[in-house]
Amino acid sequence: MTDISVIIPVYNASAFLEKSVASALPFEEVKEIILVEDKSTDHSLEICRKLAEQHSKVKLFQHPDQGNHGAAATRNLGIEKSTGNFIAFLDADDYYLPNRFDIEKKAFENPTIDGVFGAITVEYLTEKGKQEFQSKFTNVSLTTVNYPAEGKEVFRGLLGLTTKTFGTFFHLNTLTVRKSALQKNNLKFNETLRVHQDSDFIIKLAFHCHLKSGIIDQPIAVRGVHDDNRITKIVKYSPQYNQRQFLLWNSLYDWSNKNKPDRDAMQHIALQKKAFELSTKKGFSKTAALLAAIVKDPKILKTKYRFTYTHS
């Protein structure tokens, strides 16, 4: 296994990009590092060009119209341009640790394994970023799963349907997947989602492909937390948070109706979608719709949406 394409979407990451690329360069397994620049307003494009000139592994691409299309479309373009048999992802403000690909070579000797994932830790780059992150993700220094898992257990675990507590989502930075598995199942990032497109992609990937946990008790990558992390800016259970969650679960709902996972999974996805759909309503219409939904299926009260949230 010596041909991994590392895909880095780049948008306003001039302060972090060089460290991110430097962390991927030393690996013999990494055939190429694909930078897809998404019309940054800082000096990111200039840095991308410099890195591509300095390192033969680094390749630079932009969207055909050189416009800004978001992380999903940017990663999709990276996959399209990749030439490796394996795909790995890295955010431009994050970096790999030296053990990043320790498990992959042995794991992928098994042709039934489509993807391997591991654990990621956080590094606080600013005090404000630290406070915002910890207010949303309490006591989360290591994003990982709680026990070794593979196959459908991963899919069900990500939906919270396993008998044991599965743990948190694994991060895209820790995933290595066969490109052929993405092509076979026509798996791409949903370009209509400006956030949560990674969660959407991972859940669908876990259903269609045979994923296996790798190193889950120590980090293989580091997530940089700073003032400009978009995902930590939104107050949990606020109207904006609920709207974005609705878009995520609506995407999964449409997908589940086409792909028909097991009944529990379809019901769970439908309830999550309905719960966050209700969260966008206000006043009496919201109360009436909620009561009707509870009568139809009381399990809706166990969804991720907090019905006790009173702001509108």
Rank of each mutant, 00 (worst) to 15 (best):
P239L: 07
R263Q: 14
N242S: 12
T280S: 15
S279M: 06
I269F: 02
M266Y: 05
A265T: 02
S279P: 06
K236L: 10
A288M: 14
K273P: 00
H268I: 03
N250H: 13
P239H: 07
Q272S: 06
K260T: 10
A289K: 01
I269Q: 00
D254A: 14
W249S: 07
S251D: 01
S256R: 09
A265I: 04
S285L: 10
S238G: 09
K274T: 06
Q272V: 02
G283H: 01
A275M: 00
W249E: 05
L278K: 05
K273H: 13
Q245G: 03
K236E: 07
R244S: 12
F246L: 11
G283Q: 02
Q240T: 12
Q245M: 13
A275L: 00
F276W: 05
Y253R: 08
S251Q: 03
P239G: 03
K281F: 11
L248C: 10
Y253P: 13
D262M: 03
I269Y: 02
G283L: 03
L248W: 05
S238I: 14
N259I: 11
K282Q: 06
L252C: 03
P261T: 05
L247R: 11
R263G: 14
L248D: 07
Y241N: 10
W255R: 02
L252Y: 08
A275C: 00
K258T: 13
A270L: 07
W255M: 00
E277Y: 00
L291A: 15
A265F: 01
Q245E: 12
S279V: 01
H268R: 14
K258F: 08
Q267E: 09
A265Q: 08
V235H: 07
K281I: 00
A288T: 14
S256I: 05
S256V: 14
K236M: 09
K236D: 08
F284Y: 03
F246E: 10
S285V: 11
M266S: 09
F246Y: 15
P261Y: 02
L271R: 09
A270S: 12
N250C: 04
Q243L: 15
R263K: 15
F276Y: 10
S285Y: 10
G283F: 02
T280Y: 01
A265V: 06
A265P: 07
A288Y: 11
K273T: 07
Y253H: 14
F276P: 06
Y253L: 06
F284Q: 09
L271C: 08
D264M: 09
L291M: 13
N257R: 14
K274N: 08
N242K: 04
H268G: 01
L291H: 13
W249G: 04
N257T: 08
Q272A: 04
L252S: 02
E277F: 00
N250K: 09
G283E: 00
L247Y: 15
I269L: 01
F276C: 01
Y237D: 14
H268A: 11
K236W: 05
K274M: 04
S238M: 11
L252G: 02
N257I: 13
H268L: 09
D254I: 13
S238P: 13
W249H: 05
F246W: 13
S256H: 10
F246N: 04
K260L: 11
S279T: 01
S279G: 06
